[in-house]
């Protein structure tokens, strides 16, 4: 109830169809099962933490930490912070692309 979207929120936020990952440190984050679960949802539309909690049954604190990881690795981003009719501010997150392609050469200098 308290984390209902304000009526004027536009969910049709466009994101690039793909993103190439070249940074090896992003790979473990991308292949982490629970982070993948969150990212999968964020590929479709934007979510706030409580909506993600309902979808994933994860603890909100855990979701927040996973989101911070995803944001720091540029796999997700904060789309907006809006206020709803109950006076609550809500942060929405979305994936940075609809799909991710890993392109890593090792050793990189060869």
């Amino acid at each position: 109830m308290f984390y209902e979207k304000p009526e004027d929120v536009d969910e049709s936020l466009d994101i690039p169809p793909k993103k190439v990952i070249t940074d090896p440190s992003v790979v473990p984050v991308l292949f982490h099962k629970k982070k993948q679960k969150i990212l999968n949802l964020l590929l479709e539309k934007e979510f706030n933490i409580m909506e993600l909690k309902q979808e994933t049954n994860l603890n909100p604190g855990t979701i927040k930490r996973y989101l911070d990881d995803l944001v720091s690795k540029d796999l997700a981003f904060l789309t907006r912070k809006v206020q709803n009719e109950y006076g609550f501010f809500l942060k929405y997150y979305r994936a940075t692309a609809k799909s991710f392609i890993i392109h890593i050469k090792w050793p990189s200098e060869v």
Partner: peptide, 9 residues
Amino acid sequence: DIMTSGELF
């Protein structure tokens, strides 16, 4: 944290 930060928890 709950009402203003945007994190809702």
